[in-house]
Design a protein around this nucleic acid. Structure first.
Lengths: 335, 335
DNA sequence: CTGAAAGCGCTAACAA
DNA sequence: TTGTTAGCGCTTTCAG
């Protein structure tokens, strides 16, 4: 070996007086089936250690048509949930002897697609896709490339998917909030529980709104479309929407179900301008979790998505080897 | 091409009536220097598109002795800072036409080393290492493999490193806090500004303590070792340490410099059990940033590390191609 | 203007 | 018990 160059099995073979294939077998614990002499193996291993040999994984991958890489694409680490997802993914991948390759692809469908293609081009052994904007195209690409894949957070109609039980979680949070609130009177909108944030058109929001409505109806036989303020996911929008509501009611609503942590930030900003007395009469909940949000200056119920369980489920799907569409819902917890 | 198999340049060559090398050149915008006929190129490109061809990056990497992968290893996404680092890394890598491969390796030195080795085995084109526990070993490994590398957050004495200007940031925060506090009296420890969290033995903490001490001395000619409570980074420890201090003083100290967001969580937990009146007399600061912490129920000064600038600097080091040790400090901002 | 051929480092079938 | 060899898919000389 030239000094400084990484050594190859050929270098090892030469120094150990053996053949490349023997080296390969020795290094991969395949020397039993190849029936190499223990002595030869020891010699090889010794040289390898001396040389500080490490396999070229690209070469191996090329030969074996796999890579030892576990690919994950996710939008961004904009919140704790995605951070937890990626961390858990890394853990599980590692446990399977795979090297996690995590790619942030944003929310743009094209960017996500090209990330997936790129990962596939590296022959990743599996692919986990979180928060897909257009899952169908991605699934199609994975399928064509015969890469085991699973969707997380945003489901795909044509592939295994693991999602939070949005409806159930929303119902749970809604019920919890209604339980602590004064009974709403249909005559006075200020006594209602409002749903703030998200997009009606997105499945996740729609499901949460469904859970919200179910419980609202069940508990009080009162549901008015005006209770749902689907203003989008940005904190600015949420802040503005709440400000408008406040102006309209002349006060805060009796209860507020905030649909995401981003929106909650907007809510907090709006509330920071309000006197203490205005706030204490209201009840707040958020469908998302952040350790610091727990510590805000008023009681707050939060729904925490179980990233750990979800990734676990997702790997189970991958292990099962089926690429049949299948939707698994994981119940979030109330914090 | 067999149906369902990924097509290769040979498939394309055949269908386009050209040679593999021509296909390769056409696909890589090298057909000018190879002087292929425009017509041939068009034919090749057309076929490639029809086949949905994508290059096998492992094969390319093997041949070119590179990979197109940008490797990053970082401890965990336990806080916003690391999340921002990885996100920014992904962005910059992408901008350079590299595919980011981000690996969470925890705080364990061996785990970090094996992650680095693994990444190197994939022939990553560059390596960014954040929060290294034992940087020297990692640097040595990178050096031997001739992989451009840079350390972030935790510096390495033998490689380019980009860190937050801890001393400066701490000085800034300290000064800011002292400015709003009543002038401390050396006679009464309850009027002092305390430093809470971190480990004296760790460079980052030591630097912050230095900044803290400098400003404390400069402003008031008062610095007592008892002001520094380096209780570690865990929230539990911080909570306990603050509780002990509270018990000793019979009240909260006049000012508190909290050394990390984790510790701050502990502080918040302790404060949540205290009456409002106890809290308002104190001044709080935190060397770390979290959007929700901003919105706590008392004013709070925070230092935000500039992950964006740091990653930018780090890439600049990588681009410069030097592996000379060099320490770059990036000033954090006061929020 | 273009094709043939070598070879990146590895694994696995086939010989011996 | 071991060595030789083909070939994974690509890029890049070199020879037309």
């Amino acid at each position: 070996m030239k000094s400084g160059q990484k050594s190859t099995i050929y270098d090892i073979a030469q120094k150990a007086g053996a053949s490349p294939s023997a080296v390969s077998a020795a290094l991969n614990d395949k020397w039993k089936q190849r029936r190499l002499k223990q002595e030869t193996v020891d010699r090889i291993l010794q040289v390898a250690r001396d040389e500080g040999y490490t396999a070229n994984l690209q070469a191996r991958g090329l030969r074996k048509a796999e890579s030892g890489l576990a690919g994950m694409v996710l939008p961004d680490h904009e919140n704790r949930f995605f951070a937890e997802l990626s961390q858990q993914f890394a853990r599980e991948a590692h446990a399977r002897g795979l090297c996690p390759a995590i790619v942030h692809a944003g929310r743009d469908a094209d960017a996500q697609l090209s990330s997936v293609e790129s990962l596939i081009a590296y022959s990743v052994d599996l692919l986990m896709i979180a928060g897909a904007t257009e899952p169908l195209g991605l699934a199609h690409t994975c399928r064509k490339a015969r890469v085991p894949h699973v969707f997380v957070d945003h489901p795909c109609a044509e592939a295994p998917s693991v999602v939070t039980d949005n409806t159930g979680g929303a119902a749970l949070l809604t019920k919890t909030l209604l339980d602590v609130m004064e009974p709403p009177s249909s005559a006075d909108p200020a006594t209602w529980l409002y749903f703030l944030g998200g997009e009606q058109s997105l499945p996740a929001s729609a499901e949460r709104i469904l859970g919200f409505r179910q419980q609202t109806k069940a508990a009080k036989a009162l549901f008015d479309p005006g209770q749902v303020l689907a203003c989008g996911y940005e904190s600015d929008k949420a802040e503005a929407a709440l400000a408008a509501l406040y102006a309209r009611l002349g006060q805060l609503p009796a209860g507020l179900f905030v649909n995401s942590i981003g929106c909650f930030e907007g809510v907090l900003r709006f509330l920071s301008g309000l006197p203490e007395g205005d706030i204490v009469r209201s009840t707040f909940g958020c469908f998302d979790h952040d350790p610091f949000a727990t510590l805000s200056r008023f009681p707050l119920r939060m729904i925490r998505q179980r990233a750990d369980l979800m990734v676990g489920e997702a790997f189970r799907q991958l292990d099962a080897g089926t690429s049949e569409p299948r939707l698994i819902r994981v119940a979030p917890e109330l914090v």
